[in-house]
């Protein structure tokens, strides 16, 4: 179960990071930074909430 959650989180994180990079290329720097930060948050969150 833990692996499944991690797998999904990783996929979503990469997807969002790629979207963040696209936003950076479109010159939407604030949007890109927030999306990248949220992606990193999604990777860190399971340590505090799911895998306690």
């Amino acid at each position: 179960m833990v692996y499944l959650i991690w797998g999904i989180v990783m996929v979503v994180c990469f997807y969002s990071l790629a979207f963040g990079v696209t936003l950076w290329k479109q010159k939407n720097k604030p949007g890109s930074i927030v999306v990248i930060l949220l992606s990193i948050t999604s990777i860190i969150l399971p340590y505090f909430t799911y895998v306690k």
Binding site: V9, F19, V35, S39, S42, L45, P46, Y50
Partner: peptide
């Protein structure tokens, strides 16, 4: 494109 990210954060906090 933000929907998967928002959903993941909602699930992780909701759990």
């Amino acid at each position: 494109y933000l929907i998967p990210l928002v959903t993941t954060i909602v699930i992780l906090i909701g759990l």
